[in-house]
Structure formats: C-alpha cells, structure tokens
Nucleic acid binder design. Sequence first.
DNA 1: ACGGTTACAGATTTCAGATTTTGTATTCTG
DNA 2: CAGAATACAAAATCTGAAATCTGTAACCGT
Lengths: 194, 194
Amino acid sequence: MRANGPLDAETILSATEDVLRRYGPAKATVVDVGKELGVSHAAVYKHFPSKAALRDAVSRRWLNRDRDALAAIASDTEIPPPRRLRSWLVALLAAKRAKAHDEPELFAAYQLLVTGNSAAAIDHVADLLGQLEAVLADGMADGSFRRADPAETARAVFTATTRFHHPGLAGSWTQPGIEHELDVVCALLLDGLR
Amino acid sequence: MRANGPLDAETILSATEDVLRRYGPAKATVVDVGKELGVSHAAVYKHFPSKAALRDAVSRRWLNRDRDALAAIASDTEIPPPRRLRSWLVALLAAKRAKAHDEPELFAAYQLLVTGNSAAAIDHVADLLGQLEAVLADGMADGSFRRADPAETARAVFTATTRFHHPGLAGSWTQPGIEHELDVVCALLLDGLR
DNA sequence: ACGGTTACAGATTTCAGATTTTGTATTCTG
DNA sequence: CAGAATACAAAATCTGAAATCTGTAACCGT
C-alpha cells in the first residue's frame, strides 16, 4: 500500500525490492510492484522507462548499501597497505557471501544483471576496482608495494580473486576451506606485489 | 549406423559424441544414440547404467583428448619452471577457449557436468592440479620458486587463474584484452612464487 | 548364455491455446 | 496541467493434455 503523497522513485525502489524479496526475480512483475504501492503498473512507468531499468536501479541501491564499509577499509590509512589489502579482500568475500546467503532473491537478481552486462554491474566493478587501486597506490607510495601501474595491478588482483567475488561462482562460497583458500591466494599475491 | 560386430562401450561413446555435437546436450537423447548406432536404446543401457554416466564418460574422453599436450609442457624439464608455468597457463587458456569455440555443444555438456559436480569434472581438475603441482615442485627443487607446500600452492595458482579456465566464465574468454590480462596475473603470481 | 529386442511404467518434455505481462496511448480527475 | 487510471497491442509466460524419454524387465534368436 502506498504511504501517501505523490509517488516518487525512491518509494518505487523500496516496493520493488520488497516484491523481489518476496517472489524472486523470476516471478516478480511490475504489476506486483504497482499492487504493492496501491497504484496501477502504468504509474511505475512514469518513473522508470522499463522493467530492466527498474531492476537495474534496485540492484544499484542494494549494492551500494554495504559499499561504504568496504570503502572505509580501503581508505583507512591507519592500516599499512598490505594488511589493508588483505582485510579488504576478506571483507569483500564476507560481504558477498552474506548477501548471497541472507538475501538470495536479490542476489539472484544481481546475478541476472551480471550475465546481462548491465550498467549497474559494470559500475559496481568499476567502483571496487577504484577502491583496490587506491590501496595499491598507497602501498606503492610508501614503498610497501613495488611500483607499477596501479590500475592494471588492481585489475590483476581483482581477476586473481575472481573465485571469491564473482556472483556466478557463489555456489562454492559455502564450501568449508574457502577462507583458508583466500588466505593462501592473498599471501601469494602480497608476495608478488613485493 | 552400426559398423558391425558386437556393440562396445567405445563405439557407443563415439556415437554419443556425434549426437551431442549434432543436437547439443539439451536435445540429445539416449534414443538418438541408439538410432545413430542402428540399435535400440535399451542396448545402450547394457553398457552404461544411466544417461548421466554416459555423458560423464563422453566428457571424460573429450577432456582427455588434449590432456597430453598440456602434460607435455608440464613435464618438459628443458624449460625452466617459471617459464614453464607461464606456458602451461597460456596453453590451458588456449585449449579451453578452442574447445569452447570449436565444439560449443560438447563444451556445454561439460559445463553441465561441472555445475552438477560430476566425477569427470572433479577428476579433470585433480589432473590439472597434479600437473601444476609437478611444475611447482620442480621449481622449488631447483630454487627458482620459494619452498612451500606444492599441493597447496598449486591450488592457489589454479584458483587465482579461475577466470581463465572455469567453464562458467567462458562467456568472457572472447573479450580482447584477455591474453594480456593473463600475462599480468601470471607476472604477479610468478613474482609471488619468488 | 550372449547380444540384443520389445514392452512398459513413471518422469519429463513438448506444444498449442489461454492468460499474463510489458510498454504505450489515450482518458480521467482534482 | 500534473499525476494517475484505463485501454490496448504485442510479447512472454503459463497450463494441461499428448508425446517422448528414461530406465527396467521380460523376452527372442543364434
């Protein structure tokens, strides 16, 4: 049911998120979203040009929700860059795994975006790469990492940890040894960075 | 059509491979395999307990087909271990990509096995890990790699290159920069190995 | 008995027709 | 006129009956 006042994008996003959580991305329709808001589905189209755009916007908001915790680690100059990199990667895995486990339907919606090369997914990766690059740049500046192209190196580190953050591989995030596996890969990468 | 003489497992595998190539894993049926052999589908069940077992056996044979080329690199003691590791990883990507491109239906069948945790897929990975471990052990023996648990290190290297060999990520193997990306990751890993 | 066929039950897939859903255009209401 | 409802066409999805497929058992012919 609609709260009151005129309909705005943010309200629609929340309703869509609820509907998505309830029915999952395969079943949720924009008619459902309208029903949730006590409004016709056409009203939703006044604010979003298509269902795809709506899903994209929901996922973008959802992804940004724990973005800040990660960004906080990346920019915490108290921690020396090597440990910071490790913490960041561990936190990334933890965050992704928590999302996959606690909100399976929204995670499934996100997976669809990734396989569909949607803008939200691309932007999300770009954001993470940016954070990674900052940590690497800090380390190169203070001498704890060998000098190299920070952007390229960030991409390499991100790629080398694909197994721990790519949503298509989420199925194996529950297997027991994974924390240790990340540890070993981290160690290898940190040694490689200097 | 059946060649002649009694039906044997190898003949069935070849027929199944043809059928799979023609119809793809989604459409291919055991009845098709029988037709291909000029035999009833029940005859096939005399040699394989289930359709799953049949698919498993076909994929196993298909995967083993270019296993030897890779094994040859892994055990070529002429090449110093660091360069050997790099060559092996490059060859692995090339082989996987060629299979995905040239035999999409058989590759799709293999993808299904992987997502279903089939024995063929598990054994295939174990085989590759063994080859990797051998290269690493050689390098540790001759001092070009830091000493460490070779099995664990092999798994870490394999994990760090997931993006380049996991069939679930095959969709992105055609994107232009990938060779270079592997190069950068390789460099990072080689530095990490010492 | 060996190497295969035919027969069959239950699960799965197919396909056409009915229903929903998406997205747009027009209409209504305050 | 702004904000939303209704109406509607084309596309996608659902449904359920018919067909096919899987796996087993009982049955030939040599």
